[in-house]
Simulated assay, not measured.
Amino acid sequence: MKIKNNKRKICFVITAGNHYSRSKLILRALQSHRAVDLQLVVGASALLPNYGDVLSELAGDGFVCHAKIVMTLEGGNLVAMAKTAGIGITEFATVFDNLKPDIVVVRGDRYEVLSAAVAAAYLNIPIAHIEGGDVTGTIDESVRHAVTKLAHIHFPTNEQSRRRIIRMGENPRYVFNVGCPGLEFIAKNNYVVSNELVNRLGVGDIVDINKPYLVVMQHSVTSEVGLNGRNVKETLLAVAKLNIPAIWFWPNVDAGTDEISKEIRVFREHQHSKDIRFLKYLPTEQFVGLLKKCSCLIGNSSVGIKESSWLGVPVVNIGTRQQGRMKADNVITVSYDRKKIASAARKQIARGPYKRSGIYFKKNTSQRIVDILSSIELYVQKKFHA
Rank of each mutant, 00 (worst) to 15 (best):
Asn124Cys: 15
Thr72Phe: 02
Ala121Asn: 14
Asp102Val: 14
Val105Tyr: 12
Leu123Lys: 12
Ile89Ala: 02
Val118Asp: 03
Met81Leu: 12
Asn124Tyr: 14
Asn124Gln: 15
Ala116Gly: 10
Val106Thr: 10
Val104Gln: 10
Asn98Arg: 15
Tyr111His: 04
Leu123Ala: 07
Leu123Phe: 03
Leu78Thr: 11
Gly88Cys: 05
Ile89Met: 03
Glu91Asp: 12
Ile87Trp: 04
Ala119Cys: 07
Thr72Cys: 07
Ala80Val: 09
Glu91Val: 08
Lys100Gly: 01
Gly108Tyr: 10
Leu99Thr: 07
Phe92Met: 08
Asn124Phe: 14
Leu99Trp: 01
Gly88Thr: 06
Tyr111Glu: 07
Ala116His: 02
Ala116Cys: 10
Asp109Lys: 06
Leu123Cys: 12
Asn77Glu: 13
Asn124Pro: 13
Arg110Gln: 11
Thr94Trp: 09
Gly75Arg: 02
Ala116Thr: 03
Gly88Asp: 06
Thr72Asn: 10
Met71His: 09
Thr72Val: 14
Leu114Phe: 09
Asn77Asp: 15
Val104Gly: 09
Ala121Glu: 14
Ser115Asp: 06
Ala119Ser: 10
Lys100Thr: 13
Glu74Ile: 07
Gly76Pro: 05
Ala93Tyr: 04
Ala80Thr: 03
Ala117Trp: 00
Thr90Phe: 12
Asn77His: 08
Asn124Asp: 15
Glu112Ile: 06
Leu99Arg: 03
Ala119Gly: 02
Leu99Asn: 06
